[in-house]
Design a binder for these strands. Structure first.
Lengths: 233, 233
DNA sequence: TCGCGGATTTATGCATACATTAACAAACGC
DNA sequence: GCGTTTGTTAATGTATGCATAAATCCGCGA
């Protein structure tokens, strides 16, 4: 469920990260995990105290968070965690739909190795297993892994970075609606079909399957937010 | 030619911008105009001196530029203007193609007002006029306006922001190849056709026309960079 | 009770100070 | 002559100081 990168084979990772980097990660974690809910405000001094450092690195972290689109810096009120409205989700999903559909097509056309294909299949397997146990958190994590892997397989780093950023913006809303939406059985089917299309190197099919998949998901989420009267999360 | 936003109706603009903001704009301008060419390095202190301020706001500006993907901050060497390789251009254009094709479709489906349509037509007109005079700089500016307007008409601010960011990354390479490429007569035709499709509210046609347009442009640019042996700009 | 003007507080934006450590170079041993 | 080591330099990362201006508070008048 954390969107943060796994540490990989980093047993000896020189954890010599700067305070600014620690501040950035800590605050982003707080926001993504909803410990700092939308609308919360946090002054530079408060954050600095909380993180045991001075205002300077905190400030730099806030600047990065602002450019990530997750907070807003308001001169006398510290940073404010941006709420995500259904209109925002519409924007985010329109872009994600476009980019991920393209990613699916690219990956299918380019072809993938057996291991890469297996990675996708594993993610689908985990989604199905999680759904069978009604474990929605695991399902969401596996679903996220699938989408992440798909995009990574394009090899386009800019594409990856943009998709990651938008996914993070949508993260809280997705988590909140996870238990309010119908069981995502369709998603698993869609992903299995996409894997087949990729294996068959059918770019057209891959694009159309995944485009529809993302579009459906977006419509569902936006509709849910609207119908439940959540103006913003 | 400047990619920076026009000042609009800002006769009374309270030019009370922070030093950090000034530093950001100044350095971005220097980079986009190629006064700081790819590979240049600039120390915090140097930049501060040059801009008549202390290191603090310069540092904040550099952080933003790094997130924009135009520079890299290397701990003991200041910031370095990132070169753009043909592989980078490939990445950038793959994303732009996807997003702008989507934008074209969205705009066509949604429909535009008469004034908005006229704005697009005006841009095409300027492109044709410029090309008739062989004024490539004007052509590039009008072309940029067309693409910018198209994306703006979607109303999707995230889409706009991403496209702007990627266009800026590609800016220098585009300028450099402007006079090395064949005359862009096809572009004008493509845009005129797109305007027609939008007027007819034909989303499918709009997408396919603009997708092809961007894909062609990307292939041409990447091919040009490769064939001329420019490994990076 | 409510509105308003001025004093006060305080968060910020920027400058500056300082310790750290990477980069460079010179000296040294082989 | 070449690789290594050590000493020096300097750019950074962070802390802190300070002036500014916005927000709040308070008292007063209606």
């Amino acid at each position: 469920m954390p969107l943060t990168p796994k540490d990989g084979a980093s047993h000896f990772e020189q954890d010599r990260v700067s305070s600014a980097e620690r501040a950035y990660r800590a605050m982003k974690d707080l926001i993504l995990s909803n410990e700092l809910p939308a609308g919360s405000q946090l002054l530079e001094q408060e954050a600095a105290l909380r993180l045991g450092m001075s205002r300077t690195p905190v400030r730099e972290a806030m600047i990065r968070l602002e450019q990530d689109g997750v907070v807003e810096i308001r001169p006398r009120h510290g940073m404010r965690v941006l709420p995500v409205s259904s209109a925002d989700m519409r924007e985010i999903y329109d872009v994600l739909t476009s980019l991920e559909a393209t990613a699916a097509e690219m990956v299918a056309r380019k072809g993938v190795t057996a291991e890469e294909l297996q990675g996708l299949k594993d993610a689908v397997g985990e989604m199905e297993a999680a759904l069978a146990c009604d474990n929605l958190d695991d399902w969401a994590a596996a679903d996220h892994r699938f989408h992440e892997l798909l995009v990574k397989l394009t090899g386009n780093q800019r594409l990856q970075q943009i998709v990651t950023q938008l996914s993070e913006q949508a993260h809280r809303a997705r988590m909140l609606t996870l238990r309010l939406r119908p069981k995502p059985v369709g998603s698993n089917r869609d992903h299995a079909m996409l894997v087949d299309a990729i294996a068959a190197r059918d770019g057209e099919a891959a694009r159309s399957i995944h485009h529809e998949h993302r579009a459906k998901a977006g419509d569902m989420l936006v509709g849910l937010l609207d119908s439940l009267g959540f103006k913003q999360l």
